[in-house]
Structure formats: structure tokens, C-alpha cells
Amino acid sequence: MTKMANAYQCLELSAAPRQSWFEKCQESIDREHRSREGEASEGSSWGVPFVGTKCLLPRPVPDVEESLSAALRHISDAIEGSRSLLQLQDDWDEAGAVPISKQTWRRATEFLSRYAGRVWDTSGDVLDAPDITPVPDGSIDLHWDSPTYEMLINIPVDPREAAGFYGDDRDRISIEGHFDTQSVNEGLLHWLTKAT
């Protein structure tokens, strides 16, 4: 994720359809996980696609790609910072809290990447970075707490369980419900887009 600023693109790929930020981010997370799990990392580093010997000199990506990477760096920074959740031990709240599993953290961060990318792709807006925080039952909260709105999304431990969310504008408008983290909830996406 820290390589987002080093975005380059091979000349041969410049005519290819633009890969969305989400897809690139997802790819980066997948690669990083494989790498951390001891598997060989394939291809080149993120943002520097490797196309055999045909990849000549890299050139800077178009301005829009650079601005996209820079604009969403705060999201990748938040994800990177949340790795500390994986260090929490048994009973980390002195009241029986369970550790945060790598699987739950991965689902939470992949979800965040996907939605940040979709908000950008659909509206050109930049999603605020949430606080990524642990919950004593081993789940993870994504919490946006701004002066004009608040949104809480809980990514549960069980991947089969729906994620719960609640948000409001600190006044009369609110949204609440559950959704499958593997798909995109259009209502939630719309709300997050409006909130940016």
C-alpha cells in the first residue's frame, strides 16, 4: 500500500482500460498477504506492471492516476496503521476480550478499500479515513466520527454473518441496517458518498 505514490505504467498498457483504484488496492492487499504468508509474490510491485521484456522504460501515469493515489493515501495509511490490532493478546481489555484474527482484519480492510474505491469511481469524492478499532468480541469497527456525520460499521468475526451499520448526520437523517461484506450495498455507498 505504501507504494501507491510510485505509480508508473508500462507503455504497452497505457491503452488498456483503467484499472479501478479498488482493483489495484485489492491486488496490493492480496499480494502483501501472500508475501507475509510466505508465498512467492508474483509479478512486479503494485503500480509497476511487469509484461515480460516488452516493458521498456516506465513513464509517469496520467495525472488522474497520480491524483487518485495521492487522494486515497490516507485510506491506505489507516489500513497500514491498523495492523497493530493483530498484536492484541487474550483478555486485552481485562474483561475477557478475544484477539483480532488476521481473517477478520483482512475482511475489514478489503471492505474499506472496496468502498473507498467505489466512492471515488462513482462520484470522484474522497472517502474520509475511518478509525479502524477492535471490539472485545474479536470483530472490528470502522468508525467515522466527524463534526457533520457519524458512521459505524462492524465487521463480524464470522464471515457468514452480515455486517451491521449505523450512521447519522447528528440531526434527523440516519441510516441503519445489515449487509454482506462481499457485495456492495448501494444504500450505504450512497450515504458514504454523500457524507464525503
Partner: peptide
């Protein structure tokens, strides 16, 4: 509220109220 349920900005995490 335990120390591990505070954010770096010293506000309380929502997880403190989940039981």
C-alpha cells in the same frame, strides 16, 4: 473503560459499549 479501548486522539472506541 480500558486503555485499549481508547483511540490515539483519546476518545473512546465504540467497542467499549458492545456487551
Amino acid at each position: 473503560v480500558h486503555r485499549n479501548l481508547f483511540k490515539p486522539d483519546k476518545t473512546i472506541m465504540t467497542g467499549a459499549f458492545h456487551h
